[in-house]
Structures are given as C-alpha cells and as structure tokens.
Design a protein around this nucleic acid. Structure first.
Length: 323
DNA sequence: AATTCAGTCAACCGCGATGGT
DNA sequence: GACCATCGCGGTTGACTGAAT
C-alpha cells in the first residue's frame, strides 16, 4: 500500500534521457527482459529509478510503438472509447495497437478535447454543453434566423435535425433490445457476437428508418433485459478484451458494456457520433411523422442519455423560441 | 533579429491496486 | 488480516519548438 520510495532517492538522474541511456536500457531489456523494474537500473548500469526506466520503455523505447500522426480511424476510436470509458487512457490504449496511454492522453488534451469544446460538446460527458458559453451557437443560430427572411424553413430544418438524432437514438435502443443477450458465465473471458458491440450497433444507424415503439417494460426499467448479466456497473471488461474494436470490428465486447453505456458519462455517443460525421443531419433520409412521434415518446421516458438530451432540449428556451 | 506566445509531448509525481510474506 | 514492496495509472509539469508579432 505504501508509496514507492524510488523517486525520492537522491543522486538519481531525472529529466530527458540521453541516447546512451536509451541504448543501455534497450540492450538490457532485450537480453534479460525487464523483470523487476526496481532492480533493473542497477543491473543495467543506469543511474535512474526503476519507475523512470519503466516509463521510458513503455512510452518510448518499446519496439512495437507506432509513431506519427493519429489517423482519422484512430481519432474516431478514441472518441468512441472515451465516451464510454472516460479518462481510462490505458484501457483506451489497449484498443489502439502501438499507441501508448500517454500518447493518447496527450492527443486528447491537445486536440480532441479542444475540438469537442469548439463544437459545443462537453469533453467529459460528450453531450452538448448547457452552460452559458455553449448557448452561444444557439444564439448565433437564432440571430441568423431572425436576419434570414426564410426563417421558418430554417427552423423546420433545425427541428428535423434534432428529431433525426432522437430517431436514431430510438433505433439504437431498439437494436440493443432485440439482440438476445448471451449467457455470460464470466465477464472477463466471454466474447459476445459482433453485433452486440455498441460500436457495431452504432454503425447500423446510417438509415433513420421509422423506429418501432419501445416495450412498456423497457420504459419502466431499461436495464431489466440485461439484469441477469453480472457486473452491469463495470465497464472494465472492455479493458480485458484486447481483440475488439480497433481490429476491424470482427469481435465484439462483453455484456457489461451495456452497463457502461448506461452508467458512463458519455452515454450519448450516438448523438456525438452523428454530430461529428461529415454529412449534416439534414442531408440524411427524410423522417416520417411516425418516427418522430415514436422517438419523442421513447426518449422522453427512457432513462438512457437520450432522454436527458431531449429534456435538455425541451428546457432550452431558445429551442422553444425557434419552435 | 529578437521576443512573445501557443502547442506539443516526454517525463515526473502522487495515489491506488495488487501481490507476496 | 496487517504490513510492505512494487507496479501501473492518471494528472500535471516543464522543456522544447515553431509561428506570430
């Protein structure tokens, strides 16, 4: 339980590593493996603490480390995983081969976080921000509407776009419900069919077909269909499954992801995903009146994050003003 | 050319978790 | 069960670099 004293020891070198130190560390680990990190520096002839050696190896010297810019795919994967896992950088890193948790964390803090903020999303919850600053885009949009002679048309488009999000959310929930959850004897070792992965399900949301109404039992207790699953609260099984997501979606997640979807701050990732997609919502297939009605009914009563989105929307005076 | 500023990223720090005795 | 050593994680810092002034 106690803290490691290694970094408190005086006389040990700190700061940037020299090429000579790197070489010593690489040669030693290649020959002997790292074994005990605490013992390693002495054995390798380094005047560093074990912690520093471990960090240098795992974040920089490891042979399988991928360098260079993050691809669009990697960026999307990070966004998706962060919406579910939060700041679990090591867990996210297990789904991005060759990337370190430190690298992903830095990329998040320097790029993705800002990107989300600029788009009006809370980077922690992945949901539209409701504070004073985030209403600015709304205000600007409203100003445009007032200035524009065809504001009714724009308002209708705005409403359609919002409703489209709800329709997709509804469809997503429906898809979740209609996949029979497999028996999970053990959450850490069991794989689920590919389609059970929330990310694979997300990919089904391309077409906003008229979503069916949700069963009343679901509206009362959305988690009930999954109540037999062990450990609904813990999203950590994602961490244990090294095979999913980044490897092309061939293998899915474990069942506890449902718990993660429900309990994690980022349960509105479909919403975010749509908003980050290159094509604007209004470019998608038209909504039917029925789908909008169903969506509003479902989302306003379910406990899924979408309900909160909807209630946020209803609480938004600007939304009312436009409507 | 010098200075300032902002962005990036390697490295450090502190804490909790884990495993051994 | 208590204690201790070690590991691993996430937050933060600070050096470095390139762009802007």
């Amino acid at each position: 339980m106690g803290r490691s004293p290694c970094c408190d020891e005086s006389g040990l070198k700190k700061g940037p590593w020299t090429p000579e130190e790197d070489e010593k560390l690489i040669k030693y680990i290649q020959k002997h493996g790292h074994g005990s990190w605490r013992a390693l520096p002495k054995l390798a002839g380094l005047n560093r603490c074990g912690k520093s050696c471990r960090l240098r190896w795992t974040n920089y010297l490891r042979p399988d480390i991928k360098r260079g810019k993050f691809s669009q795919e990697e960026e999307q994967t990070i966004l998706n995983l962060h919406s579910i896992l939060g700041n679990k950088w090591s867990a996210i890193a297990t789904h991005l081969p060759g990337r370190t948790d430190n690298e992903i964390k830095n990329f998040w803090n320097t790029h993705l976080k800002k990107k989300l903020i600029q788009m009006g999303f809370d980077p922690m919850t992945h949901r539209p921000r409701t504070d004073i600053f985030s209403t600015l885009p709304h205000l600007l949009a409203l100003a445009n509407l007032i200035d524009n002679p065809s504001w009714e048309e724009q308002a209708m488009r705005h409403l359609q776009a919002e409703a489209l999000q709800m329709a997709r959310l509804n469809q997503y929930l429906h898809t979740l419900l209609h996949h029979q959850p497999p028996p999970f004897p053990n959450t850490t070792t069991t794989h689920v069919p590919a389609d059970m992965s929330p990310f694979n399900l997300l990919s089904h949301l391309e077409t906003p077909a008229a979503p069916p109404s949700l069963p009343a039992t679901f509206l009362q207790d959305p988690l009930a269909p999954f109540s037999h699953l062990p450990d609904l609260q813990a999203p950590c099984s994602v961490v244990n499954d090294q095979s999913s997501l980044s490897k092309g979606g061939g293998v899915g997640h474990q069942g506890s992801d449902f718990g993660a979807m429900e309990n994690s701050p980022g349960s509105s990732s479909p919403w975010l995903r749509q908003n980050l997609s290159p094509s604007p919502p209004s470019a998608a297939a038209p909504l039917t009146e029925n789908s909008i009605t169903n969506t509003v009914d479902a989302c306003s009563t379910s406990s899924y994050g979408g309900a909160q989105m909807w209630s946020d929307l209803l609480d938004d005076p600007i939304f009312h003003e436009i409507a």
